[in-house]
């Protein structure tokens, strides 16, 4: 696989939170390039700054110092509204706890995303892609954890973003369900050329990605390329 085009580049990014009277350095001088179409796994123990990094990538937050650029746009200098548009058009989020809106049905939860973008796939099509068209009218409380996460994948997918950001997507799921979700993500990466960034603390998953970046104490410690990456069936935990 030839990886050339940099989709997003992170340069010397630091993030300092002020918690009461102490400064917490969540990110220290982290640098990383994300290539168009790759499956990148960022791995690190809890508290290592991986969620903070994902928030910077997803335009949910701005770094204290350093730059983040998406193609030729500098996210670290964008206005709130520009970041909103960036999240709307370029990014699809998949959260550990799915974050579905409990009072909306599966289909409606996907529509929340399609409603605000210009050329979305239909919500039903997105549900078909995750194999849940039959459960369109169910509320989140009527779905299993795996199903909820697949709805959340459909929601992320539906707005046709270039970048899928997954924050511990299998953190709350059992092994079998996890396999399903991961398989789906890698299929989306391969078939629809979506760039997938997945953060996890689970080493077992690392083999799935094209590349694996290890993060510790807020810095990217080590980047490894899997050649070739494993398939979902091959990984065990």
């Amino acid at each position: 696989m030839v990886l050339q085009r940099v989709l997003l580049s992170i340069r010397s990014v630091s993030k300092v939170y002020r918690m009461g009277e102490v400064d917490v350095h969540a990110l220290r001088n982290a640098s990383l390039d994300i290539y168009d179409g790759e499956f990148l796994i960022i791995i690190g123990p809890s508290g290592s700054g991986k969620s903070t990094l994902l928030n910077q990538i997803g335009g949910m937050d701005r770094p204290t110092s350093g730059t983040i650029s998406f193609m030729d746009r500098e996210l670290s200098k964008s206005s709130d509204y520009e970041l909103t548009l960036y999240r709307r058009r370029e990014v699809g989020f998949i959260f550990q706890f799915y974050n579905l809106i409990p009072t909306l049905t599966a289909l409606e939860n996907v529509q929340v995303a399609t409603e605000i973008v210009e050329n979305p796939m239909t919500a039903m099509e997105a549900l078909q892609r995750v194999g849940l068209a039959g459960r369109a009218d169910h509320f989140p409380s009527q779905l299993s954890g795996g199903e909820q996460q697949r709805i959340s994948v459909a929601r992320a997918l539906a707005s046709n973003p270039r970048l899928l950001l997954c924050d511990e997507p299998t953190g709350a799921l059992d092994v079998e369900t996890s396999r399903q979700v991961l398989g789906m993500l890698s299929k989306l990466n391969r078939e629809l050329q979506k760039t997938v960034v997945l953060i996890t603390h689970n080493n077992a998953i690392a083999g799935l990605g094209d590349r694996v970046a290890r993060i510790r104490d807020g810095t990217i410690h080590h980047i490894r390329t899997n050649d070739p990456p494993k398939s979902v069936e091959e990984i065990h935990w």
Partner: peptide, 8 residues
Amino acid sequence: TLKALGYS
């Protein structure tokens, strides 16, 4: 979540 999905 709404903000993450790009709602202003």
